[in-house]
């Protein structure tokens, strides 16, 4: 029918909200991968964070405690992966997939008693003065706290990776763990910290879904967001700001899809529903066609196990 009935300001604002879970999970995974660890368990960590965060926020009545619990749960969950891959040297791809499957089942189990329970209502923060700027105000400055936290997290990740010694060490471990080891850095310990950070971020992303965006608990509610986050890291070629752009692009697609439908646009629903995944595949194909890993900026040791003896 007519696209003019779509309120673009509100659409862009809800795009930011829709993108936040993916953004949080992706920035965590980015750090993990920069340390040379490929954790395919993002979906599992997200959903664990979603149920733990929801349960704690409902029991305590505090969204903040919910997010804290989700981060802890996500980190703890990811350390299962850390233990298996870093100490027992299991295959990272297989272990990550197992983590996703385990997370989906585990969350369904602990979530039994929370189905259909009403969540909290999280206040939006209208930043004084700037939230009144026309157009930009409603789009950028009238969200809940976690939206800003996610953006700050991207900025912090970028700054740490680029400008600090800690970031340099993390990248060194990801690019050449033998050299980092020879220099005396504790490769396994650093990787474990990166994995835990990734888990905590994924947990926050999941909790954002169950505490703010829906807000309710259902089995499998992350519905593939973790996989999109994983693809996003590749799409962003392991650069934090590109993750931000990618997340808003993908988050936007899902929201735009529903808006076009509501506006009565004659677009087959099935195509719109599959569009985020199609674009993910497309990006992966384009990015991996005829170029070397180095050109893609991938960490050289991504997915390889490290043992001091080897």
């Amino acid at each position: 029918m007519d696209i003019s009935s779509i309120n673009w300001i509100l659409l862009l604002a809800s795009l930011m909200v829709a993108a936040t879970p993916i953004l949080l999970a992706a920035i965590g995974e980015l750090v993990t991968e920069r340390a040379g660890v490929l954790n395919l368990g993002v979906e599992g960590m997200m959903i664990t964070g979603a149920i733990c965060g929801f349960a704690v926020s409902v029991e305590t009545g505090s969204a903040t405690l919910g997010f804290v619990a989700a981060a802890i749960a996500g980190a703890a969950f990811s350390l299962i992966f850390g233990l298996l891959t870093q100490f027992l040297l299991s295959n990272q791809v297989a272990t990550g997939l197992a983590l996703t499957l385990f997370g989906l089942g585990f969350s369904a189990l602990i979530g039994q008693g929370y189905i259909g329970i009403k969540g909290l209502s999280v206040p939006h923060i209208h930043i004084p003065v700037i939230s009144d700027i026309p157009v930009l105000g409603p789009i950028l400055f009238r969200h809940d706290l976690m939206v800003y936290v996610s953006i700050l997290l991207v900025a912090a990740t970028w700054a740490v990776l680029k400008y600090t010694r800690a970031g340099l060490i993390l990248r060194a471990v990801g690019e050449n763990h033998d050299a980092a080891h020879a220099l005396g850095y504790k490769v396994v310990r650093i990787r474990l910290m990166a994995i835990a950070f990734g888990g905590a971020c994924a947990g926050l992303g999941g909790a954002y879904l169950s505490i703010v965006r829906v807000p309710q608990w259902t089995e499998g509610m992350t519905a593939g967001a973790g996989w999109i986050a994983l693809a996003l890291v590749v799409f962003a070629s392991w650069k934090p700001w590109r993750v931000l752009i990618g997340a808003y692009l993908f988050g936007g697609l899902t929201v735009l899809q529903l808006n076009l439908q509501a506006a009565g646009l004659k677009v087959p629903v099935e195509y719109l529903s599959m569009s985020p995944y199609l674009i993910t595949i497309l990006v992966l194909v384009i990015m991996s066609s005829g170029r070397s890993r180095a050109a893609l900026n991938a960490p050289a040791e991504l997915g390889r196990s490290f043992h001091a003896s080897s």
Binding site: S5, I6, N7, S14, A18, L209, R213, T254, L258, A262
Partner: peptide, 14 residues
Amino acid sequence: PAKEADAAKALIEQ
């Protein structure tokens, strides 16, 4: 719930 919430929000926004 996630999809239903998004759908409701899209309708409200319009």
